[in-house]
């Protein structure tokens, strides 16, 4: 069995991010790290590898700055890692590129996280499933093999603290919920070795993607990025509920 895990590198920037001049994404500085949610997808894939000997391939779409998350995935135990060299932010485009990259790979299961900590669109996984014509399940909290080789038993989170169990045909795409498997620390020596070895990258033209194709899909534009406005005048209120309610109503009406 083969699993492909889609990962994203997110920046922990010191400087505030700004939109690119053409609005096609954002400019960031500093190091990039594995998006936390995708880390869980990777851990889940590696758990399956441990139990069933599946082959795990890690894929990312990103500039050279993002390749280190692939080193991490190899150090943790992925068998192969591929980076598609493209600096894209729009989920439509990223999922399109991924769908092309996956054409050359064989897979029974595709795992992704539920969202990225920088873009927070929660779209790439679902959109990729749709483009590949695969069944997809969002916010998966548990997975097991169902009756027969080609079925999966998948539990996903619903609102209100409920869970739903589904039987899904393989191949399928699952967006795993954070916390599905415990995160492990990347063994440093293996990471050093992976960094030494490097990871292969493929260009968009390798995948047969043209600029026009991308331009056609570019439907959003980043205009502005603002930090969360923090008000330092936090006040602690005390009193019984009635008094508290009165104070709060008073404050709200003053603010309006």
């Amino acid at each position: 069995m083969n699993i492909v895990v889609c990962l994203k590198a997110v920046p922990t920037n010191v400087k505030d991010p700004v939109p690119k001049s053409d609005g096609a994404g954002i400019l960031t500085e500093g190091d990039c790290f594995m998006n936390a949610s995708d880390d869980y997808a990777l851990e889940q894939a590696l758990l399956l590898k441990k139990d069933f000997g599946t082959r795990v391939t890690a894929v990312t779409v990103g500039s050279v700055r993002s390749q280190d998350i692939l080193h991490v995935s190899l150090a943790k135990g992925a068998d192969e890692a591929i980076r598609v060299d493209a600096d894209e932010f729009d989920p439509n485009i990223v999922s399109f590129i991924l769908s092309r990259a996956l054409r050359d790979l064989s897979y029974d299961l595709i795992l992704t996280g539920v969202e990225s900590s920088d873009g927070m669109s929660s779209q790439v996984g679902i959109s990729l499933g749709a483009q590949l014509g695969l069944p997809y399940v969002y916010a998966v909290t548990k997975m097991a093999f169902g009756n027969g080789e080609d079925r999966l038993l998948v539990t996903r989170e619903l609102g209100g603290g409920r869970y739903q169990t589904l039987e899904v045909d393989k191949p399928a795409l699952l967006c795993v919920q954070s916390g599905i498997a415990p995160l492990t620390y990347t063994p440093p020596v293996k990471l050093i070795h992976a960094r030494r070895k490097g990871v292969p990258s493929r260009s968009l033209s390798d995948l047969g993607i043209t600029g026009e194709e991308l331009a056609r899909r570019r439907k959003t534009k980043v205009i502005e990025i603002k930090p969360l406005e923090k008000n330092s005048s936090t006040q602690w209120l005390s009193g019984n509920p009635e008094q508290l309610a009165r104070v709060i109503i008073d404050k709200i009406s003053k603010a309006l």
Binding site: T12, L183, P187, P188
Partner: peptide, 19 residues
Amino acid sequence: MEQNSFPPELAPVFTSLER
């Protein structure tokens, strides 16, 4: 570095230092 073995409370410390 080699055995990836340390008190569990250090994993978030290392990760935080890294990131």
